[in-house]
Design a protein around this nucleic acid. Structure first.
Length: 740
DNA sequence: CTGGGATTGATGGCT
DNA sequence: TCAATCCCAG
């Protein structure tokens, strides 16, 4: 609190609601928001569970949760943070929606044990449907179809609504796919990310549900309000409609999510929606030097569509912005690495780029120079093939209707089940309304297939039956062990990949298994339900909180949005890359790219380097991209050129043969120290307790659910009541609980 | 019908 | 560069 300046203090202490905090870059808006929440709890004695706070990324949510927990002297929740009642609900729109959909989605005819499909799953469904509808993928790009459907959802349109808007052949095709897609998702008991918000809106239309929310929450806070879209906007509006205690924080200059249909009007019209609202401007930047702020200001002034605002700083003028050019992309990476190597203060540095793919080359040079680094974002852990394979097995076990996962793994590793056989199986399932379980317990129906196919399928269903029985009686870890053992997965990997890559993949699998042990003791199927949800929505954040103080941070600008660094490198400042080629046709898209550059520049506290290469080899050929137009928009007085030396020229074109090493290095930084290094050894879960040590009425503590009381016992199976979240069935002997 | 090898095509940001 | 698709042999 003491570190806050007057404007920030006002924003923290203001007891008027609604409240709009109009906060420029570097005005410490998230910090201010965090302080505000802590103040509400500590000084205004508002009960934490009355507070509902949404952020834009999991990372931001986690950071905020931790700061508040520390401030209040509470334990930082390790997972499933929405269940920690001593803290407010703090999460992304998606995560929060998923949590509440599990409570209420049955009101609109869905099942509560839905699973969540990611982009990859979604695309598989679309492709499958297009095949069934005999649509040519060349004519209709599945991604475009998917994008159009997604847009329809964001506009709040279900297929029947969407049909009304159709006015071209393409749209009518999309509509056909959309209808079928909805049916398949229903049938598979799956939701996609868009559904989370769309259906959240649907359940809020139910008076009884809305009443629950109005009773449960009284205070609502939204970070990055300029990046909300219509569904998110409506969700917040209806939640806050009773108490009208809404506080939003945002900056239209930093709106960089219009491609996700964020609508800047939401923040611009806040005063119209809530005429009684107080507005507080945070216009002083406490982060950057004057040179950096001046450069950022001159760039953003080139945009037309925005609020008038001043952003200033009382910080020193500081160093000029250093513009560096490489001969080619390797030279550029070399220059960056040299600069950082010379400075040695690795933890102060961040390298920001426009697209994830750009990290790779830079990583190679950092490795070459022995500079520790961490890549944020990129391919998600659970999107890696080996993880998704095992996950798909678990999903099919958990949800026998999950056809996408079934298709994914029915022939992985190969069981000689080909496309024809799969089609036959699907027909069997659909036309007879069989489920996988029906077939598994009644293999005679497979007689329809050719002997070879029948043999293969029979083996698969035997495995399936075994896995289901493991799942229902053992831990998730043991289920994974069963999957890996039952499919010879290790052998499969060894046949498909090189030695090092196999090792790396096995390490991933092992880490995956370790993660699962958190769910030990929860009873089937709730253990799997919780596990799968965490994987889909909030697991990644648990993995990347390790110390970054010693290493260079690499990330996209989008990810960096809520962060700051002493020294920032913006790489690849070239037309086609940044601004991105897909934005060049549209002035509004260019403006968004410009806001992105604004965000990138304002991440830097003291030193800013912007680099590019005169020519580069990418996507298989050489190209020479002109200098980014945004560079030309910075007046010379704020910049200085540094062509960089070809210091280690000999190595520039040297060996690239690092192979998988760099991946391994990156991964090892994610790992927990306790993770053993080789092979998959998933230890059997030993008994942690004897059931006889526990009695009815005992108070216990669970790492995930907090304090609870044993209210019923039947052998080792106990019903444990946790405050605020109901009764969980657990196996006392293996649950990670402790007596209190 | 399946599996392996060759060819082609695509390549944004995040939940 | 990598993944998906196509093509052909067994």
């Amino acid at each position: 609190m003491s570190q806050l300046n007057p404007a920030q203090k006002e924003a923290v202490l203001c007891i008027q609601w609604p409240l709009l905090i109009n906060a420029g870059a570097g005005s410490w808006k998230t910090h201010t928001l965090t302080e505000r929440v802590a103040y509400m709890i500590q000084d205004q004695h508002i009960r934490p569970e009355k507070i509902f706070c949404v952020t834009f990324t999991n990372k931001a949510a986690k950071e905020m949760r931790e700061r508040i927990a520390r401030k209040l002297g509470l334990e930082v929740p390790t997972s499933n943070p929405f269940r920690a009642h001593s803290l407010p609900i703090i999460g992304t729109f998606h995560a929060v929606s998923a949590f509440f959909l599990r409570m209420f989605i049955d009101r609109i005819g869905y099942s509560k044990d839905f699973i969540i499909y990611d982009e990859d799953d979604k695309l598989r469904v679309i492709k499958q449907i297009m095949k069934e509808l005999s649509l040519d993928e060349k004519e209709f790009n599945p991604r475009a179809v998917l994008g159009t459907i997604s847009k329809a959802k964001w506009d709040g349109l279900f297929p029947q609504d969407y049909e009304q808007t159709v006015d071209s052949f393409f749209w009518s095709v999309v509509n056909d796919v959309y209808k079928k897609y909805t049916a398949v998702m229903r049938w598979s008991n799956a939701l996609d990310f868009d559904d989370l918000l769309l259906l959240m809106r649907e359940i809020l239309k139910n008076d009884e549900v809305l009443e629950y929310f109005h009773g449960r929450f009284e205070y609502f806070l939204v970070d990055e309000y300029q990046d909300t879209n219509i569904l998110q906007y409506e969700m917040i509006r209806s939640l806050a409609s009773k108490s009208r205690n809404l506080c939003v924080v945002g900056d239209d200059w930093q709106g960089i999510y219009s491609w996700r249909w964020a609508d800047i009007k939401n923040i611009l019209s806040f005063k119209k929606d809530y005429p009684e609202a107080t507005v507080i401007n945070l216009e002083e930047n406490y982060r950057s030097t004057q040179n950096i702020i001046n450069a950022a200001n001159t760039i953003i002034k080139n945009n037309s569509n925005q609020m008038e605002k001043t952003l200033f700083t009382n910080n020193p003028i500081g160093e000029k912005i250093v513009l560096m050019e490489g001969v080619d992309e390797k030279h550029e990476a070399d220059i960056i690495a040299n600069k950082i190597k010379t400075a040695e203060d690795y933890g102060n540095w961040a390298i920001l780029y426009r697209t994830n793919g750009q990290s790779r080359l830079i990583e190679e040079w950092l490795i070459k120079k022995n500079i520790p680094y961490r890549v944020y974002g990129g391919l998600k852990f659970y999107e890696r093939k080996e993880i998704k394979d095992i996950l798909a097995y678990i999903r099919v076990v958990f949800n026998y209707a999950d056809m996408v996962s079934l298709r994914r793994i029915i022939n992985v590793p190969s069981r000689k089940i080909g496309e024809k056989t799969i089609e036959g199986l699907m027909n069997l399932l659909e036309q007879n309304s069989y489920s996988l379980i029906d077939i598994a317990s009644n293999p005679d129906v497979l007689n329809w297939f050719t002997p070879q196919a029948r043999e293969s399928l029979t083996r698969f269903f035997q495995l399936y039956t075994t896995l289901r029985s493991i799942a229902s009686t053992r831990t998730i870890r043991e289920l994974m062990e069963g999957i890996i053992g039952g499919t010879n997965y290790v052998e499969y990997l060894k046949a498909e990949y090189g030695e090092e890559e196999v090792q790396w993949k096995l390490d991933n699998v092992e880490e995956f298994a370790n993660m699962a042990s958190r769910y030990d003791g929860l009873i089937y199927p709730e253990n799997l339900a919780m596990f799968l949800e965490d994987i889909a929505l909030i697991t990644d954040q648990d993995r990347d909180n390790e110390n970054s103080s010693e290493s260079v941070s690499l990330m996209t600008i989008h990810l960096a949005k809520w962060l700051e660094f002493k020294k920032v490198v913006i790489a690849w400042a070239e037309e086609w890359v940044f601004p991105h080629s897909r934005s060049l046709m549209e002035s509004s898209a260019i403006e968004e790219e410009r806001r992105l550059m604004y965000v990138a520049i304002t991440r830097a506290k003291e030193e800013l380097y912007i680099t590019r290469a005169n020519e580069r080899y990418s996507f298989g050929n050489y190209s020479a991209n002109p200098k980014s137009r945004f560079l030309k928009e910075i007046p010379d007085e704020y910049t200085i050129s540094d062509t960089g030396s070809r210091g280690s020229a000999g190595s520039i074109f040297g060996s690239m043969g690092n192979g998988i090493h760099w991946l391994h290095d990156v991964m090892s930084q994610f790992k927990q120290e306790t993770t053993p290094r080789s092979g998959i050894h998933i230890p059997k879960i030993g008994k942690k307790h004897n059931a006889s040590d526990f009695n009815m009425g005992d108070r216990i503590r669970h790492p995930q659910y907090g304090a609870g009381t044993i209210v019923a016992m039947n052998g080792a199976i106990a019903d444990i009541a946790f405050s605020g979240m109901g009764i969980k069935k657990m196996n006392i002997e293996i649950a990670p609980i402790e007596k209190q």
